[in-house]
């Protein structure tokens, strides 16, 4: 997204009317600062504001994801290895899916108050269920024969977790992390409701940014989400042993 790279008045000319006409204005909004059409005279849009909001969203999302991983993976590993707490681990996953993000964010804003720290914690909490459940299930589904063999040739329990179960559960754990990332990015998008300005500010602020701003926000959020998804998919590939990939084929 180099400044001027795709900007300019001409963009909309290339888009077939009427379906995609709206996107031209949105792309212009992203690259060129302009006067708000709604609130008179206010400068909105432009690459600078986009990057600022995007950075906030990336920052809280990454922090929240890291926090969620730090909490959920060890807990999932522990209970998965011990083979206890299945109801809790799977129940948390199911319950987590049922929580409406909008209600969560709104309630936090109303009851606790706002700020990056609170938001990060809330996002992390929303990210925990899929990671916890997938880690637990991933460990439980590891083929028992290698684990039995590992114990039989003298690995200690922590060694079994670290050298056998964890590497073999990577695909499942990463699926959980990708699910959490999707939740977190989506919820971070409505974070402006809780007072933290992310790219969602464009989406929720039609009164300031106008229709072009809303669409621009939607495009930017979608792109950001896909960048996270592809990055994590790439990470998953790197972390998954070639032996497991061959086995999956």
């Amino acid at each position: 997204m180099a400044p001027g790279g795709g900007g300019g008045v001409g963009v909309s000319a290339f888009l077939p009317h009427p379906f995609f006409a709206g996107f031209g204005g949105a792309i212009e909004f992203i690259f060129n600062e302009q006067e708000s059409t709604v609130t008179g005279g206010k400068k909105v849009g432009g690459i600078e504001q986009v990057l600022e909001l995007a950075w906030t969203q990336i920052e809280v999302s990454l922090l929240a994801l890291a926090l969620a991983i730090l909490i959920a993976v060890p807990v999932g590993l522990y209970f998965g290895h011990k083979g206890t707490g299945e109801l809790v681990a799977v129940g948390i996953g199911n319950a987590g899916r049922a929580v409406p993000e909008l209600a969560a964010i709104a309630l936090i804003a109303a009851v606790i108050g706002v700020g990056v720290v609170t938001l990060t914690i809330v996002l992390a909490v929303l990210g925990i269920p899929p990671i916890l459940t997938n880690t637990f299930v991933g460990i439980r589904q590891v083929d028992r024969a290698p684990v039995d063999a590992a114990r039989g040739i003298g690995m200690t329990e922590p060694e079994i977790v670290r050298k056998v179960e964890l590497p073999m559960a990577v695909p499942s754990i990463m699926t959980g992390i990708r699910g959490a990332s999707i939740n977190i990015i989506a919820t971070a998008t409505i974070a402006p409701l809780a007072g933290v300005l992310t790219l969602g500010d464009f989406i929720l602020g039609e009164n300031v940014y106008g229709a072009d701003g809303v669409l621009a926000g939607a495009i930017l959020v979608a792109v950001l989400a896909l960048i996270f998804e592809f990055a994590l998919a790439g990470l998953q590939r790197r972390l998954t042993s070639k032996g497991l990939r061959l086995q999956a084929q």
């Binding site: 083929d143 024969a145 290698p146 684990v147 039995d148 063999a149 590992a150 114990r151 039989g152 040739i153 003298g154 690995m155 200690t156 060694e159 050298k163 056998v164 590497p167 073999m168 998954t240 042993s241 032996g243 497991l244 086995q247």
Partner: peptide, 22 residues
Amino acid sequence: AARLRREIGYVIQQVGLFPHRT
């Protein structure tokens, strides 16, 4: 137990090779 097992070879029907290691 773990040290003991390192001194005893262990072969099982399902082999139990670690699929993620060469």
